[in-house]
């Protein structure tokens, strides 16, 4: 029998609450939440690697692959089923990651960051050069179906919201298990000192490789869900500023808890929306100050607020 720890109970409860909320909240808010959760999945990909000490400034690569798989699957392969499309994105992303991961896992620190950025920018360039993919303008995604059901308009948005919450909840549970497993703990050790891990008889490189593949897959899911929600894909998804945003959110939340990226992504979306509204001319500055404030006052991310309190109470 599956036994749930405290985090898992909370995650399940949150999923259920969000699912009900989807039917009550105004649709603009569910839309923001859909995008935020989809983005949070990519952030999880960043966080997995960050825990082992690698910062990917090119996670947009797999985000973009996931999105374009949905777009191209509908436009060129005549695949319209949501699950088939997401599966396609994951398959392509993991396939690509399996090849370039062999190269990437040889790099650490800044070099890993820069090389991941370069690879993502190459994908950006390839799409820009390709007029059948709409170049920088991108193209619109065909209306998807869910196991034969073709929802329209508001119903469709709601369906994608529900799907996103379910996938996010499921992946969060899986990630939580991984984090708390022995292998998950090794990641921290790799970050602290790789050589000592080697001496223990483990191969840091292959653990990082597995992380890389998993991060690629989960990012592709995020990209696919984003494409389904907005109904449009463009190469901006692979641009380095998009990847920068994922790193931003990862730090905002912190790497200590599986729920942190979700909270951070929602907060980020809301801060940005309101910054954009209160100060259309200087919203980037507001984001910059928020980021600085977090780094200075909460070096372990927003989650340290929750964790800190719990420790104080204990």
């Amino acid at each position: 029998m599956l036994r749930l720890d405290k985090t898992e109970t909370w995650l399940l409860a949150a999923t259920v609450i969000l699912l009900t909320a989807g039917f009550l909240l105004p649709s603009w808010l569910t839309f923001i939440l859909t995008l935020a959760f989809a983005k949070a999945l990519v952030v999880q990909g960043v966080v997995i690697q960050m825990r082992a000490g690698l910062v990917s400034f090119g996670q947009g690569l797999f985000f973009c692959i996931g999105g374009y798989a949905v777009g191209m699957g509908g436009a060129f392969l005549d695949v319209h089923d949501v699950f088939a499309l997401i599966g396609l994105g994951v398959a392509v992303a993991v396939g690509v990651a399996a090849i370039i991961g062999l190269l990437m896992t040889r790099y650490r620190d800044i070099f890993f960051a820069m090389l991941s950025l370069a690879l993502s920018m190459i994908l950006f360039g390839v799409i820009v050069k390709n007029p059948t993919l709409g170049s920088t303008d991108g193209f619109n995604v065909h209306a998807p179906t869910l196991l034969g059901w073709a929802p329209q308009g508001q119903e469709q948005k709601l369906a994608i919201f529900v799907l996103t919450v379910l996938i996010a909840g499921g992946l969060a549970l899986a990630l939580n298990r991984y984090m708390k497993s022995g292998l998950g703990g090794v990641n921290e050790a790799i970050k602290e000192n790789e050589i000592r891990v080697e001496f223990l008889g483990l191969s840091p490189r292959w653990i990082l490789y597995a992380n890389y593949l998993f991060a690629a897959g989960i990012s592709a899911v995020g990209g696919a869900l984003t494409a389904l929600a907005t109904g449009h894909v463009d190469p901006e998804m692979a641009f380095w500023t998009t990847s920068g945003e994922f790193v931003f959110i990862a730090l905002l939340g912190g790497t200590t808890h599986v729920a942190a990226p979700f909270v951070a992504a929602v907060l980020f979306a809301l801060v940005r929306t309101y910054a954009l509204e209160l100060a259309p001319h200087s919203w980037q500055m507001i984001l910059g100050f928020v980021l600085l404030a977090i780094i200075i006052f909460l070096p372990k991310g927003l989650w340290s607020l929750v964790a800190g309190k719990r420790r104080a109470a204990a």
Partner: peptide
């Protein structure tokens, strides 16, 4: 700003300067 941050991680410094970039971009514009 930076003199208080030198003990931080190399990667964190990248993020700090990224925040600076966001701030300075808009400051220049203003």
């Amino acid at each position: 700003l930076l003199q208080f941050m030198y003990k931080r991680d190399e990667i964190l410094m990248v993020i700090i300067t990224y925040a600076l970039l966001l701030i300075l971009e808009d400051a220049t514009k203003l």
